[in-house]
């Protein structure tokens, strides 16, 4: 029996981007408002899980052609690299730096190296959870 899930699939196509953009927003907001790498990463995962529910595993894999294990590795490297990078500037491991920059379009923004670290967290969270869900779902 083939189920009719046109409404779900159509809705998902729209909602996916809303959740995804929201997750990006939450991620960037993390330093000053509730949010951050963990929540952002999990929301992105939730968006992808929604895709998986609406479509099937193969379609999603075609739409998002990443190997999520590599996403995990990139995330870990980013986090470790940020932490280790401080050694190059002759300050203790894990010292973060920040400053205000005048960016076009955004105006004066405060940029932190902690953000890069958080991006590593984000990538690891997304990578691991999606890896888990994909492998469990793909196991027959």
């Amino acid at each position: 029996m083939k189920t009719n899930d046109v409404i779900l699939q159509t809705g998902t196509k729209v909602v996916f981007f809303i959740i995804f953009l929201f997750s990006i927003h939450i991620f960037f907001a993390g330093h000053f408002a509730p949010g951050g790498g963990f929540v952002g990463g999990l929301l992105t995962t939730a968006a992808i899980v929604l895709l998986l529910l609406a479509f099937d595993l193969k379609t999603v894999q075609k739409a998002l052609p990443f190997n999520f294990m590599i996403v995990v590795a990139v995330g870990l490297l980013l986090a470790l690299g940020t932490a280790a990078g401080s050694i190059l500037f002759d300050v203790p491991f894990f010292t973060h730096a920040y400053d205000d920059f005048n960016l076009p379009l955004f105006g004066v923004s405060s940029l932190h190296t902690a953000m890069i670290f958080d991006a590593g967290v984000y990538l690891v969270v997304v990578g691991s959870t999606i890896t888990m869900i994909q492998t469990i779902g793909g196991d027959s």
Binding site: H31, F32, A33, G35, G36, G37, H112, A114, D118, V121
Partner: peptide, 10 residues
Amino acid sequence: GGNIVNVILV
């Protein structure tokens, strides 16, 4: 930072 929890984390 402003979000103490997140700053503690990162």
